[in-house]
Structures are given as structure tokens and as C-alpha cells.
Design a protein around this nucleic acid. Structure first.
Lengths: 246, 246
DNA sequence: CTCAAAACATGACAATAGTCATGTTTTATT
DNA sequence: AATAAAACATGACTATTGTCATGTTTTGAG
């Protein structure tokens, strides 16, 4: 819920074009479903692009031309209101698809902004090629349906939390999700592998930065979490889970 | 956000089994996409069921066995928190699909409750038959992808509104949506064709019933709306739209 | 290493929305 | 038409969260 509009990006996008063959393409369910030859074909049609801090993958209102897959790093999906407040709807991780949906049809424009969180690498493909691929691969189409259904459930669960829970409960839910979905076990707890400032967390649960700071300070005092931003550790998952659903 | 748990339903479901041929099957994009013979086949595999007030189509936690289409009337998708508060995530209208998604896979259970709003008629189909149909009909699969994508965008827009807007703005958004999506032009405004009490509206925007009543009273005084429940009329759509995004 | 920017922190106060209590009106049902 | 149940309404008070101001600490770029 930050009010200060973000500075616009300075550098042009660093682009590494051409067919992408090797590397960490495991982790991507959609590609693994394809037969070896279909996968080669699809990879030949995809371009890998890297983005860094301060850049945008695309912005709210831009025309929709590509289907995307996160290959490395995290990408946040953000929407803004007219008065400059913004909220983060989803953090995409490697293997996540975006613009695999309706916005990609109908010649519409992007309903939100996609922003890298640190350095990321994204695969993308012209939407026409993507649709053709889906039509020719029932397995791929079913995988996309499964994926979108999961995203829809997730989004609805998020709406429920926003509608019914207090700020501290929403933050607790967020921490539980992060620990479960991107947590790394450590001696003193579960470290969240994505760099998240209090402001980021605030934007994810619909509160002001000050409120997020105050609640996190309380959580820290109660030994539920420790650390900030790059070194955020969940120390008591059960208690947080309890708080989230009380 | 009602706290009083709803009374459980008394009557068993009224069921009208067997193949469903005629009637208002226009309005259903997914069926219209199919070839005449595929459509006949699918209709032969679908069962029409009617539900009335106080009944449930399915409840949160029930096992997922069927794919559903709303044929007549409106269905609300509801989630509850442990302490009995509930929120309405979506009102489904004729042509809307539900359980077309991931929850239907994985042998999972329903993430929310589906409740008729007044009398409704629903078509349903065993999920195995549904999946088989999708695999054999790329056009149908693409339509479901398109549909799910739209639902996801809608859910994310809803999350944004819940995260960033005040109660009166959220209610204004709701009224704008209702007027646009189920509105009937009338001499003094746009009547909302779904019966909606203040409590229903409260559950849709994540406020208490009292707050919804107070805000609606204010809107009435300002001539933005008139009427209650069965006769809710939006009198000044532009002003509401403005308020929603201010 | 330096220094500016970003992130974190905290207090005082204001605005918003929830809670509880109570009463009236409307709506269905017999 | 009678009557019980829902829905609508309103006041008084409380809890939660936002706003604004100000200061400290941490981080990252040069």
C-alpha cells in the first residue's frame, strides 16, 4: 500500500535471444509433459530473457503478445490503484506460467505488471505459437487447465483471507505460505529464500508498511520470526499457523 | 461476515435424472463450441439437477466428483473461516462452469461451498467423462482455458479491491459489477436481477452486515441506489463508478 | 570505505470499521 | 390475515488500522 510511485526503470532490457536448449529446464512441469520432439520444437520457439532490479517484464495496460514461463528467480505480479497504492497479487517462482490465460486471448492488455525480484530469467513465446502448441497437445492443454485451476483456487483463498482476517492474521498466513513454498530449513528455523522487505510484505497482504513493520516487530518479540529482507526466518511455524486461522 | 452459522438444509435434493436435450442450452459457450454430435454425446452424459433455498450443491470439504454448469438461476461460491465468518467469492450465472479446474483433478475436495440463490438448475457430469471430452476436443479445452483465465483475472481484481479499497469503495465496485453483469434497464435505473440482501452484499465485499447497511443507507440518501434485496436498483452508475475508483 | 538511499522503527493522533444492543419493517409461510 | 423469521436500521462504544512526522539502522553503488 505504498503511496510513493516507483521510479521508472532506466536501463533497456538485457536480451539474450535465440533457441534455448540446455540448463535448468527440469522444474518446468509443462515442458516435461511434452514428448522429446515437441519439447525441442517448443524450446526452439522460445526466447530467454534476463531482467534485473528496476526493470519490468511488462506493465499494466501493455498489449499481450507473449506467453511466459519463469525459469530462474522470482517475479511479482502487481496491480496499482489510481492513487498510487499498489498490491502484490502473486509471487511467481521457477516453473510458474504467466499470461497462459484469457488475457493472452482477445487481443487484450495486461491486467497487471510483472516485475522481477532481483535477477530473473524468463522464457517467452509468441502467443500464436503457444495456442498452436496447446491445440496439438491435449496433455499440455490439460496441464494448463490444472495449473490455472490451482491459481484460481489460490487467488480465491487469498481473497478470503483479505476479506475475513485481521492484519496480523494475514501476515501470519503469508509467512506460513512463504515458509512452505520457498522455505529452506536452517538450524534456527525456516529461511524464506525470496528477498522480502516489510514493504513487500505489506503490499502482499493489503496493509501499510508501518503496520507490517509493527506486526513483524511483535512477531519478532514473540520469537515467531527473525531477520529482515534478505534474511527472513520463520522460527515457529506451528504458532504462526495457529494465529493465521484463529 | 455473518457470525451466526447457517441452519443446515432439511429436504433431500430434488433430482431430475436422465439425458437433457432441449431447453435453454444456448447461453452456454462451452456447449456451443462442440460439434452437434459431440454436444449430443456430452448432453447424454450430463444430468440436470434442481436446487432450492436452504440446499447445497456441495459443501467445502466434500469430495470432488463432478464438473458443473449453471443452467438457470444463480449459484454462490462461499468460503468460511473457523470462527463462522463467511465470504462469498463469486456469484455464478447461467453458462458459468464450476469445478472445471484443478480441484476436480488430484482426487481433491471442494475448496468452498456452492449454494443456490433461489431456485437454480445445474448440469453436471462425472469428471472422468469431462476430462475425456476435453482431451478429444481441443476447442473445448481452449474454451475452458479462456474461461479459467477470465476467472483468475476476476479473482485477482477482487483481491486487489479487498486489499486496497475502503468499505464504501468496495461496495460501489460491487454495485457497478452487478449492474453491468446482471442489470436490467428500468425507467429509474438499472435493476439488479439477482436477489441480494445487505448481508449478501456484506459477505461479497468483506464487511459486516451493519457496515453494509450503513453504507447502503448513505448511497440511498445520495440517490446512487434504491430498494432492497429483491428490488435493488442502481440509479447512478457513473457516480458509483467514480466512487469505486477514487 | 563512503555516503546516499532504502529499509526499519516508533510515537501521537485520526479515520475507519467492528461489536453489541435494541427496535422497526419487510417478507414469507400457514 | 396472522405471525414468525429475516432483513433493515441506528446509536454508543471499542478495536483496528491508517496517517504523518521524525529518527535510526542497514544496504548497496561507486
Amino acid at each position: 500500500m505504498s503511496k510513493r510511485p516507483k521510479k521508472s526503470p532506466k536501463q533497456p532490457l538485457v536480451e539474450q535471444s535465440g533457441p534455448t536448449f540446455p540448463a535448468g529446464l527440469n522444474q518446468i512441469p509443462l515442458l516435461q509433459i511434452l514428448s522429446a520432439q515437441d519439447r525441442q520444437k517448443v524450446l526452439g520457439e522460445m526466447t530467454e530473457t534476463r531482467y534485473g532490479k528496476g526493470q519490468y517484464i511488462f506493465r499494466e495496460g501493455d498489449p499481450t503478445e507473449y506467453f511466459h514461463i519463469v525459469k530462474e528467480g522470482s517475479v511479482k505480479c502487481v496491480k496499482s490503484s489510481l492513487d498510487g497504492k499498489e498490491c502484490t497479487l502473486k509471487v511467481l517462482m521457477p516453473g510458474d506460467l504467466f499470461c497462459c490465460d484469457a488475457s493472452a486471448f482477445d487481443g487484450a492488455s495486461h491486467p497487471g505488471t510483472a516485475q522481477p525480484m532481483g535477477d530473473v530469467s524468463v522464457l517467452r513465446m509468441k502467443k500464436e505459437a503457444y495456442f498452436k502448441m496447446l491445440r496439438g497437445n491435449p496433455d499440455a492443454a490439460m496441464e494448463v487447465i490444472r495449473y490455472l485451476g490451482n491459481r484460481l483456487n489460490e487467488a480465491q483463498e487469498k481473497a478470503k483471507v483479505l476479506a475475513l482476517d485481521r492484519a496480523d492474521q494475514r501476515l501470519a498466513s503469508l509467512l506460513v505460505n512463504l515458509a512452505e513454498r520457498s522455505g529452506v530449513q536452517e538450524p534456527n528455523g525456516i529461511r524464506v529464500s525470496v528477498r522480502l522487505t516489510r514493504q513487500d510484505m505489506a503490499n502482499m497482504v493489503g496493509v501499510t508498511t508501518e503496520t507490517a513493520i509493527r506486526i513483524m516487530a511483535r512477531f519478532k518479540k514473540e520469537r515467531l520470526v527473525s531477520g529482515t529482507a534478505a534474511r527472513l526466518v520463520v522460527r515457529d511455524l506451528p504458532k504462526l499457523r495457529l494465529l493465521a486461522s484463529t
